[in-house]
């Protein structure tokens, strides 16, 4: 291993297929691992996957099948707090980059773990990234995935925590033989039970009540009108037979809404 090799730790958790409910690799964690594995050779990266939980889970082998040398599992039960074992371990290992998924697919899945780890380690956190553009001179340039297919470039200095969004590149397929062959290293750190969770009751998700159409009418005539009239949508401004004026009005609306990218819009998103 080169002395200046970049250490990348990827937190992986067990996933659950949204339809069949079968245990599998978690999609976002697999995206994070794929991101780490796809970093350029020149960086001499050293990728390690870490899981806190039961080392016997079959789904963890999926990550081995993606081509990593080994997986470190910090043994704990499902009731224990992953933060309590992951924080001391990572503080000792001190990777340069810590990648996680945005939200876990099992359990609470609050997506809080990366925030808590970043806070405890006192590292900056970048949420929901889609790509790592480059890492040089102790700083990284990341692409954050925004809604509507947009991307934002964020620069952050090493070491940092980043959570990876599903919009990142699709993870590679799992090679069965590698998955069988891979090594799972088990460690048994001191665990701590998650106290807050003992007060919760979990149940299968109830269908949420559909929102009814809200009628705020006070008189019967108003109610009838709301029920029957089609949305009148107060017709807006109309410009007739004047292409120049029309183009100007359209342009101004676009600028005001801030959707024209090559010009300065006042609107903020």
């Amino acid at each position: 291993m080169l002395p200046d090799a970049l250490n990348i730790a990827v937190l992986v958790s067990q996933g659950r297929h949204p339809v069949s409910g079968r245990a599998r690799r978690a999609h976002q964690d697999a995206c994070a691992l794929e991101l780490a594995l796809c970093l350029p050779q020149a960086l001499a990266t050293n990728v390690r996957a870490i899981h806190a939980g039961d080392p016997g889970q079959e789904a963890l082998r999926d990550y081995l099948g993606m081509g990593i040398d080994g997986l470190t599992v910090l043994s704990q039960t499902a009731e224990d707090d992953a933060l309590a074992v992951l924080h001391p371990y990572l503080a000792e290992q001190r990777p340069d980059v810590l990648l996680t998924g945005v939200r876990a697919e099992c359990g609470e899945g609050s997506g809080l773990l990366p925030y808590l780890l970043a806070d405890r380690l006192d590292w900056p956190l970048v949420t929901g990234i889609a790509a790592i553009e480059r890492i040089e001179n102790g700083a990284a340039s990341l692409l954050q995935a925004l809604p509507r297919g947009q991307r934002r470039r964020v620069r952050v200095s090493l070491p940092f925590v980043a959570s990876v969004e599903s919009a990142a590149a699709e993870p590679r397929q799992v090679a069965f033989a590698r998955a069988r062959r891979g090594r799972i290293t088990g460690l048994t750190p001191a665990t701590e039970i998650d106290q807050a969770r003992t007060e919760w009751t979990l149940s299968a998700a109830r269908p949420r009540p559909k929102r009814l159409k809200v009628t705020t009418a006070r008189t019967a005539a108003d109610r009838l009108r709301q029920a029957t009239a089609k949305a009148q949508g107060s017709t807006g401004q109309i410009i007739r037979d004047d292409p120049q004026a029309a183009a100007k009005a359209i342009y101004e609306l676009l600028v005001e809404e801030g959707v024209l990218r090559n010009t300065q819009g006042t609107g903020r998103v």
Binding site: Q232, G233, Q237, P243, I250, L260
Partner: peptide, 24 residues
């Protein structure tokens, strides 16, 4: 569509798009 729209430009689409392109 005009009833739904917040802003309507009445005229030939080619002319209006041309004016808009020129303005941009």
């Amino acid at each position: 569509m005009v009833k739904r729209a917040n802003l309507t430009a009445i005229g030939d689409s080619g002319d209006i798009l041309a004016a808009l392109l020129q303005l941009v």
